[in-house]
Write a protein that binds this DNA or RNA. Sequence first.
DNA 1: TGCACGTTTGCTACCGGTAGCAAGAAATGT
DNA 2: ACATTTCTTGCTACCGGTAGCAAACGTGCA
Lengths: 330, 330
Amino acid sequence: MKRATAQNVAMEAGVSKWTVIRAFTPGASITEASKAKVLEAAERLNYRPNLLARSLATNSTHQVAVLVDDFANPHKLPFLEKLTASLQAEGLVTMLININQHYNHVHAILNADQRQVDAIVLFGTAFRDEMLTDHKLGRGGPPMFVLARDSQIEGVPAISCDAVVAIAEIGKHLLERGYRRPGFMAGARTLSTALGRRRNFKEFWRTTLGVELVEMSAERYSAEAGAQAARDYLSQVAPEDRVDVLMCENDALAFGAMDVARSEFGLRVPNDLAIVGFDNAAPAASPAYGLTTYEQPTDQMVKAAIDMILERAPRETVNFRGKLVVRDSA
Amino acid sequence: MKRATAQNVAMEAGVSKWTVIRAFTPGASITEASKAKVLEAAERLNYRPNLLARSLATNSTHQVAVLVDDFANPHKLPFLEKLTASLQAEGLVTMLININQHYNHVHAILNADQRQVDAIVLFGTAFRDEMLTDHKLGRGGPPMFVLARDSQIEGVPAISCDAVVAIAEIGKHLLERGYRRPGFMAGARTLSTALGRRRNFKEFWRTTLGVELVEMSAERYSAEAGAQAARDYLSQVAPEDRVDVLMCENDALAFGAMDVARSEFGLRVPNDLAIVGFDNAAPAASPAYGLTTYEQPTDQMVKAAIDMILERAPRETVNFRGKLVVRDSA
DNA sequence: TGCACGTTTGCTACCGGTAGCAAGAAATGT
DNA sequence: ACATTTCTTGCTACCGGTAGCAAACGTGCA
């Protein structure tokens, strides 16, 4: 059986379809009597307004496209939970788009655009700026926002955690604990530069102690990639030449690095090698890791993003201060 | 500047809007000459067909609503990644709906229905059957599917991992390893019964050894809840009376339980207490846990779900066999 | 009772596409 | 050269709503 339309309900209730619409429009001009009559008829026919038709007519879908690519990062899940819950609380619905080899940003944005979404959120995705300023993503599309990473793109504001402050806090803590030979493990190249963590960390040690940072790179942001990068480093560098503290660009890398350091090289954390992560993902709190890390202010970030989407706040890049979470690993 | 419509392109190209549409419809009857003319004009105006209008006219949105509620389970993320990637590969888009206190299944289903989604997937969500068979979710809505849990609901097929086989495999392994005093930790009540893991596990020990299962319950499916449940049990039961193997309904619970057993009670895993999980979430593979667990055949499950959505396969409940992943914890 | 006024209802036009029919143009056969 | 078939193009009607104007209605007041 086809679903009932306003027209059907109108006939059932003996009114015009516009009266039916009014019964479903809060604050519309309609008498209680006819409203009741319509609602009753609607109930009988199991009528529900078609939001597709409404969206077409009003030019607003209340849908927000959220682009995600780094599914190996356990921190993404609770973040995504907050984002979707908050969007829903504002009557917005999430269109989740998985960015991968077969489906890149241009595909995603074009598709979201054609579906007339109200906004597009690039949620921590790795992209080269040219990709977005590129060709056919011509003006007139939905507003775009970058969440949880930087954006240098004109007209695309970023909502992120203040990397300068974060790294300064972490650095200060490490200095006080007496670490002197710092290392840094970066993840995927494109995103690394956009996060600015390496740059700031390097700068920190250079200006405070005049020390050069030892840098290593993982292939991706995952525990496996972090493990491999740590394995490469530890097997190539003699114990006495190694860094005494390793900052990883995110927790996923840190977990992998810590696993390898302990189980494959017998190192004690933090005595032989201290490790710091970033994100405060769930396992970081577990005694199995006890990872010192930095927590992004996800609540504030989500709120800010939504305020911009709904134009309750100016659409411009903002940074929030997170907080250092000191545990056993450093 | 407003976005261009087919009508605009038609004027620009000097043809009717239907010719424009045809230029964008694969296999439509149109000469190469006019197609080229139209595409060029479209390019100039940056025209992209409005999928909302198309959906309204064709009565098909190519959108699938995916309902999720258990964001504390790290296993969800890679599963969700596969699901979204596979949907996208079929030209379907994911509408992600977060089921929580403020937004229950009825809200979600009603909303998805009004948005005319092609299908609704309940992805491992906890619900009471009455909620769905209930009232206003009358017939005529989009087809529903339950993924990664059981469904007893008429007309709502389930795609899941065969719990009977899984538990039998796990039980057999534990028997062989010599464990004789089994315990089981369940998560949220509504989902527990739908997963059938406890029931089957209990049955297994009863029929093989005639042993009664020790049961405990966590509040939710999270490491914290698992930790608390383990803490309660271990602090109340004397060492000599404790179970020798604890099967947890999923890995999240197992991580919490293992953390507590080791760090708060000084127990060695598996010597003092063996632990088994379910899902093979990422941290299970880490040497920090080395959790023996059971991996669901997510690829097959996702494929089956999509085949049903696209009506390439009959819409009926199917079960797939997963595989036991033996590590150090049991 | 008559008139002005505010409220309720129905109307036309529109959002941007799709479906399928019919007329016009081009290709084919005799 | 003309009839016939096939392809191309434009058309009307429709998907299910929204916007805002105009007519119909009921009410208060003189």
